[in-house]
Simulated assay, not measured.
Amino acid sequence: MTIEGGCRCGATRYAIAADHIDAIYCCHCTDCQRWSGSAFSEQAVVRENAISATGPVIEFTLTTPSGAQSHQRACGVCHNRLWNSNSSRPGIVTVRAGTLDHNRTLTPRAHIWTKSKQPWVVLPNDVPAFEENAPIAEFTAILTR
């Protein structure tokens, strides 16, 4: 089975070879707020070898404060950011969950960087929330349960 998504203008489409995507989280850091132009970003974690794209995909690289290389992929026409990989997490990509065709069916499993969240955003009590990045082992356990 595949899960599909694409950019705002429709020029770039992607497919993820998976039956379902459960590893969804929301990031409330100020970088994600700026990138998304919204209060937070909703992201899906998938294996890098599971994603393929058609249409014009551009890539640009940023160096993170930790020194890791963040490789951003976006539509070459409308520049809608679609997914990224990071040299500190080989084999994993982070898909912008809002670009998935069926994004309304997703349920976040965690919220990170809540110390930067907008004051009007109310988080559910039953979803783990972290003031900054979650400890990697705990975060992995939450996303893979």
Rank of each mutant, 00 (worst) to 15 (best):
N86T: 12
G91F: 10
I51N: 15
R47E: 14
C27K: 01
Y25A: 07
F40I: 01
S88N: 14
A74R: 15
C78F: 12
F139Y: 03
V122K: 05
S66Q: 10
L123G: 02
V95M: 14
I51M: 11
A97V: 14
R34L: 01
K115V: 03
I142M: 00
T2R: 09
S116D: 13
C7Q: 09
F139N: 02
F40Q: 06
P124D: 06
A50E: 10
G5D: 07
V77E: 11
A68Q: 05
C32M: 07
C29A: 02
V46K: 07
R13V: 05
C32Y: 09
A134H: 00
S66Y: 09
E132K: 01
V121L: 05
V121Y: 01
G67M: 00
V122I: 02
S36G: 09
C9S: 09
A18Y: 13
N49C: 06
Y25N: 07
M1C: 05
A134T: 01
I142G: 03
Q72T: 12
Q43P: 09
C78P: 14
W35P: 00
R104L: 15
N49Q: 13
T12S: 14
R73G: 01
C75F: 12
G37Y: 04
S87V: 11
A18V: 06
T140H: 03
R109L: 15
P56T: 10
C27Y: 10
V122S: 00
Q33F: 04
F40E: 03
W35M: 09
N84A: 10
I136Y: 04
L82S: 10
L123H: 02
D101G: 07
Q118H: 13
A17D: 15
T140K: 05
N80S: 13
R81F: 14
P124H: 02
I3M: 07
E48P: 05
A44C: 08
S52F: 06
T114G: 04
E131C: 03
E48C: 01
I3C: 04
T12R: 10
T114H: 02
S38K: 07
H111T: 01
S36L: 04
F130D: 01
V95T: 10
K117S: 04
N84M: 11
A39S: 05
A129I: 00
G37I: 01
I92G: 13
I112V: 11
Y25T: 00
I92E: 12
L143W: 04
G76T: 13
A141V: 05
D31P: 02
L82W: 13
E48F: 04
R8K: 14
Q69R: 12
A15I: 10
I21S: 04
A68M: 00
A53E: 08
R104T: 15
S87M: 13
E59L: 08
E59G: 11
V93D: 11
V127G: 01
P56Y: 08
K115Q: 05
A129G: 02
T140V: 03
D22A: 08
Q33M: 07
K115T: 03
T64H: 10
T30S: 09
P108K: 04
C75V: 09
W120A: 00
F139R: 05
L62C: 10
S38V: 00
S116Y: 06
P124R: 03
R34W: 08
C78K: 12
R81L: 14
L143C: 02
Q33E: 05
A53C: 12
G55F: 14
E42L: 08
T144M: 04
A17W: 08
